[in-house]
Measured scan of single mutants.
Amino acid sequence: RPLSCPNHEGKTMEFYCEACETAMCGECRAGEHREHGTVLLRDV
């Protein structure tokens, strides 16, 4: 079952931030994590 983002209601966490070692949604990735290296969560 997909994980919901606690910061963006209705968004699914699909990415993993390698710098912060945390899962995130597309909005997180485009925002606070935009300078960080990210991979698809399913690839982690």
Rank of each mutant, 00 (worst) to 15 (best):
R1T: 14
R1G: 05
P2W: 05
P2F: 14
L3S: 14
L3Y: 08
L3D: 15
S4T: 15
C5H: 00
C5G: 00
P6C: 07
P6K: 15
P6N: 04
N7D: 09
N7A: 13
N7Q: 13
H8K: 13
E9F: 12
G10K: 10
K11I: 13
K11N: 14
K11W: 10
T12D: 14
T12N: 12
T12E: 13
M13S: 13
E14Q: 09
F15N: 08
Y16F: 12
Y16M: 09
Y16W: 09
Y16N: 05
C17A: 01
C17N: 02
C17P: 02
C17G: 01
C17H: 00
E18I: 06
E18C: 05
E18S: 09
A19H: 06
A19R: 12
A19N: 12
A19I: 01
C20Q: 02
C20D: 13
C20G: 02
C20A: 01
E21T: 10
E21D: 14
T22N: 13
T22A: 10
T22W: 01
T22K: 06
M24L: 13
M24W: 01
M24R: 04
M24Q: 04
C25I: 01
C25F: 02
C25H: 02
G26R: 08
G26A: 13
G26V: 11
E27F: 15
C28V: 02
C28T: 02
R29F: 05
R29N: 12
R29T: 09
R29V: 12
A30C: 07
A30I: 06
A30W: 06
G31P: 15
G31L: 07
G31K: 11
G31C: 10
E32L: 11
E32C: 10
E32I: 02
H33K: 04
H33S: 04
H33Y: 00
H33Q: 06
R34M: 10
E35K: 14
E35L: 06
E35F: 03
E35A: 10
H36R: 02
H36G: 04
H36V: 02
G37P: 09
G37S: 12
G37R: 14
G37D: 15
T38N: 14
T38K: 09
T38M: 04
T38H: 05
V39Q: 10
L40M: 09
L41Y: 09
R42Y: 09
R42D: 12
R42M: 04
R42C: 06
R42Q: 14
D43M: 04
D43K: 06
D43L: 00
V44S: 12
V44T: 11
